[in-house]
Design a protein around this nucleic acid. Sequence first.
DNA 1: GTTGATCTTATTTCTC
DNA 2: GAGAAATAAGATCAAC
Lengths: 86, 86, 86, 86
Amino acid sequence: MDDAPIEHLTEATREKLRQTVAKIERLEEEKKEVAEQIKEVYSEAKAFGFDTKALRQVVRLRKIEKADREEQEMVLETYLIALGEA
Amino acid sequence: MDDAPIEHLTEATREKLRQTVAKIERLEEEKKEVAEQIKEVYSEAKAFGFDTKALRQVVRLRKIEKADREEQEMVLETYLIALGEA
Amino acid sequence: MDDAPIEHLTEATREKLRQTVAKIERLEEEKKEVAEQIKEVYSEAKAFGFDTKALRQVVRLRKIEKADREEQEMVLETYLIALGEA
Amino acid sequence: MDDAPIEHLTEATREKLRQTVAKIERLEEEKKEVAEQIKEVYSEAKAFGFDTKALRQVVRLRKIEKADREEQEMVLETYLIALGEA
DNA sequence: GTTGATCTTATTTCTC
DNA sequence: GAGAAATAAGATCAAC
């Protein structure tokens, strides 16, 4: 749709475009705020005396372990399906 | 803080650590959700017929322009302060 | 260095540039070939009767587990350093 | 093949599976090494004074041009075949 | 001020 | 060919 140049978009389409961009920008703003909150937590932790590098590793490791568990479940599922269909 | 090996952390410190990790994980989860919402908006826009690549460029461009405006406002403010107007 | 337009590069620099580009292109070619070999192995495995989806998951899972082990070692190291320096 | 559950795979099949995984992992390792070599070339180029961003663009552009040339050659070949010249 | 680390975006690849 | 996943690229920010 709307392969035509922008100046030929209908007003309804232009309005839709405006709303879409606005929505994205609002969500990106939200995301940015959450990212800043995360940084704050690390700053506070550092001020408290925690080693932020180690702290980041803890968080990362826990994320990997979670992904690992999920992957294992998926693998198991795949095998069960593969064996069931064989 | 807590120069002793991990097993010698005080219970209070361990609790603080637990809370910090939990807080970060909760915020990262939030961030992920917002990121997914953004993806959804792009998907919907695509389904509607917008060229998402172009849409992304619009968003990026507006972000840059906004940064420029803020930069300019900052410069303006600096001038105003320098002139004793703010 | 060489902030000047390309037409002002010395011949030595131009030659160096040529060699660098050639080297990169040769290595990218190599990489592409290896990627093709990997695809061939999957094709052969499929022809042999293996479920390639499951096979890919096995490979991915082993990769994750390897990364997990390495991450754990890194975390341990970080803690040892953090505790040793505390 | 081997419709039975995993624990009933023949030893020969299990061995084949092991070899396949090993082969893939070896090739992926190779691929990774080549990728690292490419990064090294860029690092050296940077140390030498080249603008790596521009260098990457050169490489990308040449890749596109090469693809274009091949495309054109393919079209040419198609025409030649269609004309009975090849 | 440069390297290193992290995070995000973009492109490519794979799968269905 | 559309959607998802992997890889690569670029940008950003901190630390030395």
